[in-house]
Write a protein that binds this DNA or RNA. Structure first.
Lengths: 252, 252
DNA sequence: CGCGTCCTTGAACCGCGTCAAGCCAGGTGG
DNA sequence: CCACCTGGCTTGACGCGGTTCAAGGACGCG
């Protein structure tokens, strides 16, 4: 993330979408001139809500949820500082997704008109974003298929790596910079709480992780990677998107 | 698909992306001035190939495949006349996907430069496409999670509905306009051949479909829909994208 | 006719979801 | 200070769904 700079408006770190962009979110944010705060556990938007713009996360952690089959809550995506959530689709379609603050979170709401104008003034930005989404879509479609073949063990190992990727690790004790309940981990991995616990203790026995209450220390990241992609390593076997080289744009 | 028109170049039906588009694929195709033919079973591109443009399907049927975990071949998507495949991502990244003609197929190759130019000349087109991809991405992410919860029975019922959506039904005998092997159905649904056979005979016993060798007649479509979304009907429980109202853009 | 390819069915194994019960920590009240 | 409660964590037992293996049909083709 060497491309990070400080946002002129909020003075937080902001990611470029990629190097093509001559306009970046900063300008759009300073245009919008508004800020919202959400407490831990509070809904930013609920499933079924219509969203007339997008939210830029200035500081905080957010989970995007969707009630799945059997009314099981599932976490579709995690987002942190610098990511964008709630991007509307065409025709103001609504989708059954909601967003909840995982901790106290500060947002900037970007109205559709502002976003539209910014895009119209800069075809290159739009083109880059289009390519980005197109590329993400392809990856997600492949992942979708791979996910269906993964064992629960692989899914949970992958979830841990995803958490590392998104939240990062504490530099002092090497623990994940996020405290999630077993339930939430299960909702990310798409399994039951019990199964999460069993695999976590397995991982601990195999010296891959260390459990400290809710805190989890990734002791052997390579070992986890080997579990996720046991057969052919350089494929898109991971079930979660990784940030790309040029900086990362969080979606949904 | 009332928006269909004849392509000025190839004289085939061409879909609009959506009503925002003042430039459509037709113009781009007539610019490209090339045509390619592929025989049934022939590779259009292979996993790992670099693709420097995209292919417009002028006539035919194509499957997009990806070798999944355990070296299992999986069908990621199906595409027919009027769809676009092989859209590159940023930085000429390659993805482990390949495309194979399901029957004799006629394509038009659109060079990246031509596509780029067309997009630059028309920000509205680019914006529409970006919104489209963004919207598809969101749907796919939700679907990805739902897919993980579906039973094999649901997945196979959904696969049949997907085949109906993509290929359509024969107007005389009501059979699917595509003859796939059980193996291929399994690769779409993400399961084993045996399971496909078992569910198909189940469906036949329950008067939902009629098997005629490889041909399949969807006898009770509503019944199949009920299997796919038994719990809450109006959700994105389907595991496959449906064409949207404004016409349909095939991706990948 | 033999052979290959695909379809079909049966049987065995096992991953994992579910239920039920016990455990531990923090909070509350007497 | 202990007793109690509550919510999340943990473990064991059970059963179902689905993958896998193995064997037998159906059909087309040389």
């Amino acid at each position: 993330m060497e491309d990070n700079i400080n946002c002129a408006y909020c003075n937080n770190k902001v990611c470029f979408i990629n190097q093509h962009c001559s306009v970046n979110w900063m300008n759009i944010i300073s245009e919008a001139k508004n800020q919202l705060w959400y407490k831990k556990g509070q809904y930013i938007f609920r499933e079924g809500d219509r969203i007339f713009g997008l939210y830029f996360i200035e500081r905080g952690k957010v989970k995007i949820i969707s009630t799945g089959l059997n009314n099981k809550e599932q976490i579709v995506r995690l987002a942190v500082t610098g990511h964008v959530i709630g991007h509307r689709g065409e025709n103001h379609e609504t989708y059954p997704i909601g967003a909840v603050a995982l901790e106290d979170t500060q947002l900037c709401f970007l109205d559709n008109d502002i976003v539209y104008e910014a895009f119209m003034n800069n075809p290159n930005l739009t083109f880059s974003l289009m390519m980005f989404y197109s590329s993400e879509l392809r990856k997600t479609e492949i992942r979708e298929r791979h996910l269906a073949q993964m064992s629960i063990r692989e899914k949970i190992a992958d979830t841990l790596l995803y958490l590392k990727e998104i939240f990062g690790m504490n530099s002092t004790d090497g623990s994940l910079n996020a405290v999630l309940s077993r339930q939430e981990i299960a909702e990310i991995a798409g399994t039951s709480v019990e199964q999460v616990i069993r695999e976590l203790t397995d991982f601990e026995n195999e010296k891959l992780i260390i459990k400290q209450g809710r805190k989890i220390i990734l002791f052997d990241v390579d070992g986890l990677v080997r579990i996720v992609a046991p057969h052919n390593k350089n494929r898109y076997s991971s079930a979660w998107p990784r940030p790309n080289r040029n900086g990362f744009l969080g979606k949904q």
